[in-house]
Simulated assay, not measured.
Amino acid sequence: MLPIARSPRRATAASLVGVAALVLAGCGSQGDSGGASDGSVTLGFVNGSNTHFHTCLLKSVEQEAKAQDAKVYSANSKQDAGTELSNIEDMIARDVDALIVQTVNVDALEGDIAKAEAAGVPIYLTSVATSDMSDVLGAAVVDLKKVGALDAGWIEKDAAGKDVRVGIVAGAPGAASDLLVGGFEDALPASAKVVANQPGMFNPAKAQDVAENMIQANPDLDYAFVANEEMAFAVRKAFDAAGAEDVKIVSVNGTEEGIAAVTDGRLSATVANSALTIGQTAVRSTVGLLDEKQGVDKISDIPLVLVTKDNVSEAPQYCPK
């Protein structure tokens, strides 16, 4: 990999645009703004939360940056759009060559991108794409609406035309959760009625409270869609405690624990979208696009796998070792 001098990068940053954005959330290494390995390229990684997904995403970014001889600083926005913008400003002040952002809210990206563009720092986005693709370096895209649709498709097949009642335990309003839930609801068959939809805020304790209230209000619930596996485990616990062991739960992520839960029946299905792959793709693509290497895609679609008991062996590795 050729070293990138500071001044050429600033001069050519405007030409390194034309893609999409992505979303979810993360945590920082060595506190909220730790550093990583020395290298000829300096990257800033702004993560969005502290879920297992975000922890694995951070590990993947750090490992791949080391492999690419890049230096990476990380920060955690803690599901707050204002903190995300502040983190981006801090990264710009560090004079990073590019930013990788797992946004907490798609609506917040416009301000984030404008701030970075004004400073001549290109942004590469992870997880979801924005409608305006003109001002970002690239994106590693998880089709979150398709994720939701895959879970809905499993329910349609399992219900086999019967009228069924469905509950939704969403994540935090905005960003990933809205896309997941929207894709799920849009793909449900007409015979499936959504009787409850409440946010669990990507917090297992909150999700358990939501599930307890949901099953009390809807004791005849047939299925539940839960916006990540950490919450899904808490929802399963609440349903089982209420004597609702027969409610089938579908979820998202494909973590090692999630695949084990599909295997033993606690979850009926989950959609695997590897945090390991997202992080690797983001770093490799960012470095390649900065170097103007041939054959580097600005938009990379992350593979999705609907995992059931029938195909658990096909689930990709989720988290770096």
Score class of each variant (00 low, 15 high):
Ala5Met: 12
Ser7His: 09
Pro8Gly: 06
Ala11Met: 11
Thr12Arg: 13
Ala13Leu: 06
Ser15Thr: 14
Gly18Arg: 12
Gly18Lys: 05
Ala20Gln: 12
Val23Arg: 05
Val23Cys: 10
Asp32Tyr: 08
Asp32Phe: 08
Gly35His: 02
Gly39Phe: 10
Ser40Pro: 02
Val41Tyr: 02
Cys56Trp: 00
Leu57Thr: 03
Val61Trp: 02
Gln63Ser: 13
Glu64Arg: 08
Lys66His: 12
Lys66Glu: 15
Asp69Pro: 02
Tyr73Phe: 15
Tyr73Asn: 03
Ala75Phe: 13
Asn76Arg: 14
Gln79Asp: 15
Gly82Arg: 11
Gly82Cys: 04
Leu85Ala: 08
Leu85Met: 10
Ser86Gln: 12
Asn87Gly: 06
Ile92Gln: 08
Asp95Ser: 07
Val96Ser: 02
Thr103Ser: 15
Thr103Trp: 00
Val104Glu: 00
Leu109Thr: 04
Lys115Ile: 03
Ala116Thr: 01
Ala119Leu: 13
Ala119Ser: 13
Ala119Ile: 11
Pro122Asn: 09
Thr126Ile: 13
Ser127Thr: 07
Val128Pro: 00
Ser134Tyr: 09
Ser134Pro: 05
Val136Asp: 00
Leu137Phe: 04
Val142Gln: 10
Leu144Asp: 15
Lys146Trp: 01
Gly148Ala: 06
Asp151Arg: 08
Gly153Gln: 10
Trp154Tyr: 14
Asp158Met: 14
Arg165Cys: 04
Gly171Glu: 00
Asp178His: 06
Gly182Thr: 11
Asp186Leu: 06
Pro189Met: 07
Ser191Gln: 14
Val195Tyr: 08
Gln198Asp: 11
Gly200Glu: 01
Asn203Ala: 09
Ala207Gly: 05
Asp209Ser: 14
Val210Asp: 00
Glu212Gly: 13
Met214Ser: 03
Asp220Arg: 10
Ala224Leu: 11
Ala224Ser: 11
Asn228Lys: 07
Met231Ile: 08
Val235Lys: 05
Phe239Trp: 04
Phe239Val: 04
Ala244Asn: 11
Lys248His: 05
Lys248Gln: 15
Val252Gly: 04
Val252Glu: 14
Thr263Gln: 15
Leu267Glu: 02
Ala269Phe: 11
Ala269Lys: 09
Ala275Glu: 00
Thr277Glu: 08
Gln280Glu: 13
Lys293Cys: 03
Lys298Thr: 06
Ser300Thr: 14
Val307Leu: 12
Thr308Glu: 02
Asp310Gly: 09
Asp310Pro: 06
Glu314Asp: 14
Ala315Ser: 08
Gln317Trp: 02
Cys319Val: 08
Lys321Gln: 09
